[in-house]
Write a protein that binds this DNA or RNA. Structure first.
Length: 426
RNA sequence: GGAGAGGUGGCCGAGUGGCCGAAGGCACCGGUUUGCUAAACCGGCGUAGGGUCAAACCUACCGAGGGUUCGAAUCCCUCCCUCUCCGCCA
């Protein structure tokens, strides 16, 4: 959400700056509603002023035991005017708010211009691509052959786009979660958080999932709860409606949670394996920072996520998303893409974004420097990393000619010293 | 799920129809005093919207929403949340 002053005073400039990102925004409607709102507020407040003063006078008359019936009759009229005008005001404010919430964030000036994924800019690459003396297999092929991933069983107990990890398939995810959490906590200064994975409507609105993307989330109608699509939602909302003190910043939180996504509209894409499933685990990094520090923090956050890939020795590249590929709430995003041998392609495994004040204004998260007015802080988050996709990358990059998979060295301590995954007996 | 109690400013806490945006205390900030610290004293101290060059000023907010009334923190209704006891349960 944008600053309300910006929406009333500088709507045209916002429209120009957003360019094609704002093509679905009803600019003229917003302009009209905004004008109407301002006029109505002025009138309503004026009437309320009359009512208030008149009532005070009646109070005095009554105390002096003087008659006040005439006054009361006049004020009854005033009250009725206020009531009808408030209805008008509400009829203006509700759609105005809905529309305002549907305006995407403004990209930072360093974001490459472009209309689609192909215009994203490669920032750097890391690692050597693996060479195989055989045709590398897909992760689902390997996983099923090794007996550590079972997709038919997942379909039986839940449906399409679910997975079951068995034996090393389950343990590998657990090891990865612990490895990532430990690294971020011990070396990157993050504090671990274990949040609820069911959240209310206000939280989903605060981080930008609602109202526009309600179809993407799983909903529990009996309680009006939503299953979180990412830990970003509960963790960012920890400070919804709060005013922090400057010296509390920066706040850096890491959370390991399951994530739930309906994947509506992605029919036919990545239908096999772990790449795109309804439920997956992710370690998420969430930062609350002073506005002046948010771009330094974006670099720091991205490096923290990259460290995981480097320690796992998985080749990847860093992409700066172009204006056309940027998410709704983000001002700037770096995607980390890991190499997948079976696809001969880099695939997204982490997305690190600076939201500037966009989420903070929606979620009303502010900070105060002593003696100054509260102001909105900046929020950032990034995956560090998506665990399911990390499993995909490990299986594919570490596969051997005999169908076994070597375990990355840094994970071995988390797996009781196991060095490789071979075919299981059961 | 059943029964009861309660939600007031950063915190504690008074306030049951007007003189209440809200006493008092704590915390915090500025000042006076004091050999230092402490104490004492004086003053300041919420958020948002409108308005203004800026101010003055105006409006709203006592869990949320609605109602009664000339006037609501206070009365009525609905909802949410917290706490206590019982039941159930990892």
């Amino acid at each position: 959400m944008h600053d309300s002053r910006l929406l009333s005073d500088q709507l045209d400039s916002l429209r120009t700056q957003l360019g094609t990102r704002g093509k679905d925004v009803p600019w003229d409607t917003i302009h009209t509603l905004s004008e109407q709102r301002r006029n109505l507020i002025r009138q309503v407040e004026d009437l309320r002023h009359q009512l208030k003063q008149g009532s005070d006078r009646i109070g005095q008359l009554k105390r002096n035991k003087e008659p006040a019936d005439d006054q009361m009759a006049v004020l009854r009229q005033v009250r009725e005017q206020i009531q009808s005008m408030e209805l008008e005001l509400r009829a203006v404010e509700e759609p105005l708010r809905e529309h305002a919430l549907s305006i995407p964030n403004l990209p930072h000036q360093t974001v490459p211009k472009g209309s689609h994924e192909g215009d994203n800019e490669e920032i750097r690459r890391w690692g050597d691509l693996p060479h195989f003396s055989f045709t590398p297999r897909t992760h689902f092929d390997l996983g099923e052959a090794l007996g550590i991933l079972d997709f038919p069983k997942a379909t039986k107990i839940s449906g399409a786009r679910f997975s079951v990890g068995i034996g090393m398939g389950a343990q590998l995810e657990r090891a990865l979660a612990n490895f990532m959490l430990d690294l971020h906590v011990q070396e990157h200064g993050y504090t671990e958080v274990l949040p609820p994975v069911l959240v209310n409507r206000a939280s989903m609105t605060g981080t930008g999932q609602l109202p526009k993307f309600e179809d993407d989330a799983f909903h529990v109608p009996t309680e009006d709860f939503f299953l979180i699509p990412t830990a970003e939602v509960p963790v960012t909302n920890l400070y919804r409606d709060d005013i922090l003190d400057t010296n509390q910043l920066p706040i850096r939180y890491v959370a390991h949670t399951p994530c739930f996504r309906r994947e509506a509209g992605s029919y036919g894409k990545d239908t096999q394996g772990l790449i795109r499933v309804h439920q997956f685990q992710k370690v998420e990094l969430v930062n609350f920072v002073h506005p002046e520090q948010s771009y330094d923090e974006l670099e720091r956050l991205t490096k923290a996520a990259e460290t995981i890939l480097q320690k796992l020795k998985l080749p990847y590249r860093v992409m700066a998303l172009c204006t056309g590929d940027l998410g709704f709430s983000a001002a700037k995003t770096y995607d980390l893409e890991v190499w997948l041998p079976s696809q001969q392609h880099y695939r997204e495994i982490s997305s690190c974004s600076n939201f500037e004040g966009f989420q903070a204004r929606r979620a009303n998260i502010r900070f105060r420097t002593k003696g100054e007015k509260p102001q909105f802080l900046h929020t950032l988050n990034g995956s560090g990393l998506a665990i399911g996709r990390t499993v995909v990358a490990i299986l594919e990059n570490y596969q051997q000619a005999d169908g076994s998979v070597t375990i990355p060295q840094v994970l071995q301590p988390y797996l009781h010293g196991a060095v490789s995954i071979g075919p299981s007996k059961t």
